[in-house]
Design a protein around this nucleic acid. Structure first.
Lengths: 203, 203
DNA sequence: TCTTCATTGGACTTCATAGTCCATTCCTAA
DNA sequence: TTAGGAATGGACTATGAAGTCCAATGAAGA
């Protein structure tokens, strides 16, 4: 058994801790999130935090990053595995904007953690980099599907287009966050998506 | 007199503190930068830090943000005030990539601070937002110059194009940082600049 | 029922860091 | 030369947050 004995009740508590920590990190950053505020929000005790996360805060943050990463990918279902038509890309785009802005996140759980912690926690940094690569891979798959249908020039570099789209998301959020407006994100995203519907970038 | 009495010697010390703090923040983040490490790096004493920055760490960080913002704009001189030809844009792009990657920064002093502190320090957040707007304005000026020469479609929204370029920079850096590779930044930037030399986005 | 172990509560310890205070040194101008 | 204020040194305090420890509780199977 890899994970020590854990009952259903324990699993729920553990999950509750992860989700509450995720919310606090998104709202206040890693530095603004303390074990005491997590404890208060989850109605747990110090010993529980260390019982479920023996590695302390660092391990907890890493688990949060993993979980948020999975959530982010799940939120993009089912479109993320389609992306074979412009309509699918449009639905995916709408979902994404809603995920970030509509739900009041205003930041990417992954991208934001990347800039916050990549310099202090190498483990977390590589985990995040891996998540980014996975995400980029799914987008690149979509781009290749568009190339197969002929909508997109077959000679274009699909990985590169996927990277540009990801960068647009992350950069758009960096600008949207302080402005509290969705439009930088939408502008950046639409600009990056332009090559996917056979229309030149018109800005 | 707005600023209290300060001699040339004092001004230099103060500046030394700002620059060292800026380097540490860029390398280790705000949380990873302590007054003690700054003190050690600058060969100063605790009392000096509070003598020059009565508001403590928060004020120091804000001064750093201001100074880094000015540095960032200065680094783009003189091109940032030209940008009237594609060649000028190319020179500007090269300068920028060198500023971030060539000098081992791997992060934007402004964008990185935005995600690190905008949620905890509203003053800093608005100061950063203002810096972003100023920067965007300069880029938009350049875009309009390109429109006047006819290289760029005059009906395009110059502010929007400028925003997309800024987002490409910020997002490119988010991706470049964990990968320790310049190419995400270059890909995003080149894609955003494509509309400026009359070539459709080819990725 | 009883045993065992996961789960929980919460006080306590340790430590890093922001911030305070006062004495001392350095510079400059009268 | 000297007086005054800026600049500096560094010990000290206060605080908050991470992490430890042990006792108490709850649940599930023998």
């Amino acid at each position: 058994m890899e994970t020590a004995k854990i009952t259903e009740r324990g699993r729920l508590t553990r999950q509750r801790i992860i989700e509450a920590t995720g919310e606090q990190i998104l709202a206040s950053g890693i530095g603004g999130t303390t074990l005491d505020t997590v404890r208060a929000a989850t109605l747990t005790s110090k010993s529980q935090l260390f019982h479920y996360f023996p590695g302390g805060k660092a391990e907890l943050v890493r688990e949060v990053a993993d979980w948020e990463g999975r959530q982010l990918l799940e939120a993009q279902e089912p479109e993320i595995h389609d992306l074979g038509s412009w309509e699918s890309w449009e639905r995916w785009r709408a979902m994404l904007v809603d995920y970030y802005i509509g739900r009041g996140r205003w930041a990417c759980p992954i991208g934001s953690l990347a800039t916050q912690a990549s310099m202090t926690d190498p483990d977390l940094a590589s985990s995040i980099a891996e998540g980014m690569r996975a995400w980029r891979g799914l987008l690149a798959d979509g781009v290749r599907r568009m190339q197969r249908t002929g909508t997109v020039d077959g000679s274009a570099d699909s990985e590169r287009i996927a990277t540009v789209i990801l960068a647009a998301i992350q950069g758009g959020l960096v600008l949207s966050q302080p402005e509290r407006s969705a439009w930088p994100l939408e502008a950046a995203l639409d600009s990056a998506l332009a090559p996917l519907h056979g229309v030149a970038t018109t800005a």
